[in-house]
Design a protein around this nucleic acid. Structure first.
Lengths: 122, 122
DNA sequence: CAGTTATATGAACAGGTGTACAAACGAGAA
DNA sequence: TTCTCGTTTGTACACCTGTTCATATAACTG
């Protein structure tokens, strides 16, 4: 991300094709934006955020989480699958149970960052 | 976000209601998670990320953006509306044109942060 | 005034997402 | 083995989202 440069209006419909091309050439590939948006989407759901928050407090099994959130165990399992695929959580088998914990990654930092922003705004 | 504490299995179906309550009591209100997920959702779309990126380079009008992204002006306008409501972008009227620019806020930092993470992972 | 240009808005549609229900799986217990 | 418990998975459905098309608005031009 570079700094903002001044820009003197636009010719719009009769825009200079070379200018458009120059801007386009500065843009990363589509995959780049897709990957980043995918990463943000993981945290774009209240249920998943609750799970992430709870797991930041303590390791928990699926049924615990379901009870805490007053949700179906199935729904929680589906969301854990999403978080697992995104490598936000990891798990450890313990007999019949599966204990989930938060992978110490920057996603947790993202959460904390936005949460702090929100608090600052009031 | 507190640090992870060890947790010795769960009693699951016969879980101690007081334990569940104690975890619940440590959880913020629903609105908290809703607000944060809303904020992440704004960046959970490739098109909006492209716009944010482009506007970090230079101020642009709607038609410029549409040309650059090879998208309908209407589609771009709809997305700019979303970004405007989220206070990620601001605008300045210039005759018929409306020039959009990036509000210098932490959302741009989030973008940079995730983008950096992604690059580090390769 | 009418006509054009830049943008915004509303409706409709396809595709995606989160949840509940039901069934299946896997590991212990009897 | 059969049973139960914790979890996973498949399906269905309601809801949400992003785009397109068509129309509306707002500002400049002649």
């Amino acid at each position: 991300m570079k700094t903002i440069r001044s820009y003197k209006g636009c010719s719009c419909r009769a825009i200079d094709p070379e200018l458009v091309e120059s801007i386009k050439s500065e843009m990363p590939e589509d995959d780049f934006f897709q990957d980043i948006s995918d990463r943000f989407r993981v945290l774009a759901d209240p249920t998943r955020l609750k799970i992430v928050y709870a797991l930041s407090l303590r390791e928990m099994c699926v049924y615990d989480i379901a009870n805490m959130l007053e949700m179906t165990q199935s729904a929680v399992s589906h969301q854990l699958r999403t978080l697992k695929q995104a490598k936000v959580v990891s798990f450890r088998k313990n007999g019949k149970m599966v204990c989930y914990s938060l992978v110490k990654c920057d996603i947790a930092k993202l959460f904390a960052m936005v949460s702090k922003q929100l608090a600052a705004e009031g």
